[in-house]
Design a protein around this nucleic acid. Structure first.
Lengths: 125, 125
DNA sequence: ATAACTGTGATATTACAATTAGCACAGTTA
DNA sequence: TAACTGTGCTAATTGTAATATCACAGTTAT
């Protein structure tokens, strides 16, 4: 669990945690039925309140990303297709690109930006 | 001044206003030395408090987007290259694309998204 | 000079959300 | 029994957005 939190960010901590965990699952660092560190342990490690962490995990559970067993722990669901996590990101990209377009950005500028990010990859992965 | 505000958005009203004004400038609807509607008039039109509007305009002024003359009004600066406004957006796009990549999104998925947004334009404008 | 505008500045207040603290309770496991 | 786990709740704190007023100074036209 390598979670980085920007305490000065405008986006709430619990949102950052949600995103980090989703990323970890997408990257394959967390697989189905993997157990997460306990709330108390993780909240201590991240130096955040257990309630803040609990909120993140509760929301992830209602989204079907994780499931929890009282007394045992919190685990990664097995129906967590990484594809689902992309939807929000795609919407965000879409909005940004529309703004950029409205500001006069050329399509080529944006595609080049993306090319650079994906540069060095063998396939379009 | 066609400013739309989402009062239920998580992003503050004054931030939305800043963005809308920058967009209007980028679109050419507002040109250098154009005078904006007065604070009182605009705050009344948008049904927001004058202080909220003032905050937006004050920040725009410290960013060099506008300048104000007490007693006269608020005007668009002439050094406002629309290009500058794009920087933040480009950073945001970059971050989103990196996340999408980390989640396993293929480059083609993203470029196609952009193609669709720019679809129907004569040139890559 | 007066009136009617402009932007500016300050204060106070309200409202809401994020975060923290602390406690109690129930399930699990050795 | 002890030491963990997650859960639920209340309360307090904090920060910030947004509002409501008021006063002041510069500009402009009459």
């Amino acid at each position: 669990m390598n979670i980085l939190i920007d305490y000065h960010s405008r986006t709430p901590i619990y949102e950052q945690i949600k995103k980090e965990i989703k990323l970890a699952i997408s990257r394959g660092e967390l697989k189905a039925d993997d157990q997460l560190p306990s709330l108390r342990q993780l909240s201590s490690q991240l130096s955040i309140n257990i309630n803040t962490l609990k909120r993140a995990l509760s929301e992830l559970e209602s989204e079907g990303v994780t499931y929890s067993i009282a007394g045992k722990g919190i685990f990664v669901s097995d129906n967590t297709s990484a594809r689902n996590f992309c939807k929000d990101i795609f919407d965000e990209i879409s909005n940004c690109v529309k703004s950029a377009k409205a500001m006069g950005a050329k399509k080529e500028e944006i595609t080049e930006l993306i090319e650079n990010i994906y540069k060095g990859d063998v396939k379009g992965d």
